[in-house]
Nucleic acid binder design. Structure first.
Length: 568
RNA sequence: GGCGGGGUAGCUCAGUUGGUGAGAGCGCAGGAUUCAUAACCCUGAGGUCGGCGGUUCAAAUCCGCCCCCCGCUACCA
């Protein structure tokens, strides 16, 4: 079976991520990685922080910190939050680590050897007081079209027109407010993507099974024609323009553009992983070193698609070296907070660390994945969240586990009953489960997460329906053996549910295995058939009824959170 | 402005190679049940499928025009 390489878009270093960022790439990638591992497929799941660029420098300055220190702290915060959410990265790296420096410089060098890089001189806004060049977004001024006084250099938020910084009347630095700005010449390296148009177009055309959203974004860029792109910036924090330690003359105060080095970190993070684990990273990334056998799946938000379908492939293909390129690609839309944007500065929305202070990770994981923004932007509301958690997790799944373990304990003791044998009801259940598991597995395989979790919920419901039909609490009055068989069947269902649910609610799944003292790694192997799963326990196995798996969310909690997190 | 995505029950969403009475979950109403977290299970009510026009025996689905929401537009990442 092919090996699977999974990457999640790299979260930017600047601050803890919100629920929208989480469900936009890291969480669906985790669910898929867990699913693949449970299927027994050799899986490598890689992520990292994306640490370079202007926002990191400015945030560090605002915090009164050295950039490197700031990034180190932020990295630890993000890593901790990811761990707490159960994100099962094989490695969570940093784009500022040495392997990415080496590799980025390697790519720039090879691309230049292939004649795909040249120096060009740009004119750009320079802020004398800030002592830095300003990206278009960091220049503000009066819009020449509508007179709005806080138009940005790239676009006017008032009239929506696209602008060039030189168009602005009375421009000033958005960083300091200083009007002491001027145009200055600056030299940069350009990646000659125009020359690669055909190669990229051909490569994109060969990707038959990309989702519609992905394909249309890639094709749009190609249709407009690829443009040569500057891959360096006038910044201090980043990967210096140097090859084998030699700074490039004229580029002493420049670094590579964050979007050039960030995707390279997918590879470099794998190298970091190999340093840690002693494994060979090249067999995952070099088709001449075994990576032909790899299926590479990328997860990202829709804003990232062009960079992953065009820019990063241009780097890889342009090198003419045998690098592995993406096979399947899952892009998600945005999760909004009550229809608007999540915002740190305006205290709108819930961030990863805050979420876990309110409730355990699985509550969030389930709701986010079952309502993932796949076809369109989706709105997160606390009311919807509470309703989904209470109904799906507490009433359907949690209650199922609770009712049957308590019933068994009361009537048969803390041991799986061995009497009786399965009959018609169990045969019907098995048949129904086989069909549902097949559909669920397929939907996970093709990464249709909303559909997959409709299936999973349906599987849980089938458990409750079965109990309703089997009604051991009635049967036991006249036919103890029949009651025993159905209790045994229901207890087996708990283990089956745990295995199937583990990709999305891993913490709870492991609690469910723990009821029976099962080893999660063994017990969570993807079930071959419902029949096999239902015959795991023959009787005599001891168990411990668990505490309630999911507490319900109360209305007054929702009200308090609305207040706290700026719901509208 | 250009491009892309979306507009289907009160809410969140499925549903297009055009075709049996337009679906699910939540919410709501009724019923059944008592093992269970006032939970589970069954039944039901509820929709001019954004608007107008067209093609067709037949349109949520195809075509045209229009309205609304979101995103991207290559120096934010």
């Amino acid at each position: 079976m092919a090996r699977v390489l999974i990457t999640s878009a790299l979260p930017y270093i600047n601050g803890i991520k919100h629920l929208g960022n989480l469900v936009g790439s890291m969480l669906p990638a985790d669910v898929y990685a867990r699913f693949k591992r449970q299927q027994g497929q050799e899986t490598l799941f890689i992520c990292a922080t994306d640490e370079h660029g202007t926002p990191a420098e400015l945030a560090a300055r605002a915090a009164g910190q050295d950039v490197a220190d700031y990034c180190r702290e932020q990295y630890e915060i993000q890593k901790k939050a990811g761990d707490a959410f159960g994100l099962s990265f094989d490695h969570f790296g940093r784009s500022s680590n040495p392997p990415n420096h080496r590799l980025t410089q390697h790519f720039a060098h090879v691309l230049e050897e292939k004649g795909l890089i040249e120096e060009r001189t740009d004119r750009q806004v320079y802020s004398v007081d800030d002592e830095r060049f300003l990206p278009d977004r960091y220049v503000e001024g009066t819009c020449p079209h509508c007179g709005y006084e806080k138009a940005r250099g790239d676009q006017c938020d008032s009239c929506g027109r696209l602008l060039d910084p030189v168009d602005l009347i009375d421009p000033y630095s958005a960083i300091s407010g200083s009007k002491n700005v001027e145009m200055r010449e600056t030299k940069h390296l350009y990646l000659l993507q125009e020359q690669m148009q055909d190669r990229i177009a051909q490569w994109v055309a060969s990707k038959k099974d990309w989702p519609q959203l992905t394909k249309s974004i890639a094709q749009k860029w190609l249709k407009e024609g690829l443009r040569d792109r500057s891959i360096t910036r006038d910044l201090k924090w980043g990967i210096p323009v140097a090859y084998e330690g030699e700074l490039r003359p004229g580029f002493e105060n420049k670094v590579f553009y964050v979007w050039f080095d960030a995707p390279i970190e997918y590879i470099a993070a794998t190298e970091e992983w190999s340093e840690k684990s002693g494994e060979d990273w090249q067999r995952w990334w070099r088709t001449d070193k075994g990576a032909d056998d790899v299926k590479y799946v990328e997860f990202m938000g829709k804003d990232n698609v062009a960079f992953h379908t065009v820019s990063f492939p241009a780097t890889l293909l342009g090198s003419e070296e045998p690098w592995k390129t993406v096979d399947a690609l899952k892009s998600l839309n945005w999760l909004t907070w009550y229809g608007g944007k999540f915002s740190t500065s305006q205290n709108r929305g819930i961030f990863m660390d805050q979420a876990l202070e309110l409730l355990p990770a699985d509550y969030w994981r389930w709701h986010l994945m079952a309502n993932a923004p796949e076809s369109d932007d989706a709105s997160f509301t606390l009311e919807h969240f509470a309703s989904v958690v209470n109904k799906d997790l507490a009433d359907v799944l949690g209650n199922f586990v609770n009712r049957i373990t308590r019933f068994c304990k009361a009537r048969f003791g803390e041991e799986v009953p061995s009497e009786g044998s399965y009959g018609e009801a169990e045969a019907a259940l098995e048949k129904e489960l086989d069909a549902k598991i097949k559909s669920y597995t397929h939907n996970l395989e093709v990464m249709e997460f909303r559909k997959a979790f409709v299936d999973l919920r349906g599987i849980w419901v089938a458990g409750n329906e079965y109990l309703q039909v089997a009604a051991p609490w009635t049967a036991i009055k006249e036919d103890r053996e029949k009651a025993a068989a159905s209790v045994r069947c229901a207890l087996n269902l708990i283990v089956l549910f745990a295995a199937l649910s583990r990709p999305v609610i891993p913490f709870t799944a492991d609690k469910m295995f723990a009821i029976f003292g099962l080893d999660p790694e063994e017990a969570s192997r993807w079930p071959a058939s419902a029949g096999e799963a239902l015959s795991r326990f023959k009787g005599g196995e001891s168990f411990t009824p668990p505490d309630v798996l999911f507490a319900k969310i109360e209305e007054d909690q929702v009200a308090a959170w609305r207040e706290q997190f700026g719901a509208e």
